[in-house]
Amino acid sequence: MSEPALLEVRALDVHFPVRGPGLLPSRLTLRAIDQVSFDVRAGEVLGVVGESGCGKSTLSRALLKLIPATAGSVRLRGVELTTLPKAAMRPLRRSMQMIFQDPLASLDPRMTVGEIIAEPLKALLPGMERAEREQRVLRTMQHVGLLPAQINRYPHEFSGGQAQRIGIARALVVQPQLVVCDEPVSALDVSIKSQIINLLLDLRAEHGLTYIFVAHDLATVRHIADRVMVLYLGRVMEITDRDALYARPLHPYTRLLLSAVPIPDPALARRVGPTREELPSPLALPSGCAFRTRCPLADARCVAERPVLREIDGRYVACHHAEAAAA
């Protein structure tokens, strides 16, 4: 990676203190994000996948400083964000914005569409004149496929897909470079989901946007991402270019995820084997590799030693048995 990355994340930890059970609660630590490192290059789409509880939402919020990082570093164009005071963070928010999962919940029900989309402009570009702001809002609305006539309407008057367009317009109105999309299509209907994905792809092509696209759906991520990062219990399992990942997943967890995606064709319907162990508690992670309790390849080494993320054929995998899969 000779080109400097737009976003560099190094050994990021996000821990939450949790009260244990019982009358005399012990203080436990929930390691929602545990030693996560990755780069995001300008103009690419990094997909982040994992099951619920893998820390993908926490990660997207920590990148935007909506949740404080416990340790580690997040650099946007070389500027360290984790130690930045609130006031100094504000101008940087112009460069990174977020799209949320639940389109209706992320819009204030008491505000009109125009007010919602103008809000980041008011906060981040307070010097902008009213007329100019209004024009910018209208223009952005058109760009995400909203009618200008809808500017005075309220969120509850929109369907889920339309509401998500409002959320996208709000993120894009300040012309950010990086947009963190936290499951932006998970709550949408099938026919609407594809409209929004196409819209995100179009906007990226037109404005050279960079996305971090968080999702639990591997089929959707394959469609939009250039590279994919697989998270499990707050740890990175694999980071690989899209085509390589879907053609030949190296990590056994990636393989498990891929094999579980139901294919909409009865001729290809797969019957999964007997039930496997479910996710361990994030408060009591297994020793060594976090995935070993569900892994078919697990052996004594996986119990004893935590695998580090290492490079194999230009891909990054955290598994002791990755060579066997690569061969």
Binding site: V190, S191, N198, D265
Partner: peptide, 13 residues
């Protein structure tokens, strides 16, 4: 309109 893993990836859905 369903993205599928069993078919080649298309540019647009």
């Amino acid at each position: 309109s369903v993205p599928r893993l069993d078919q080649p990836r298309s540019a647009r859905l």
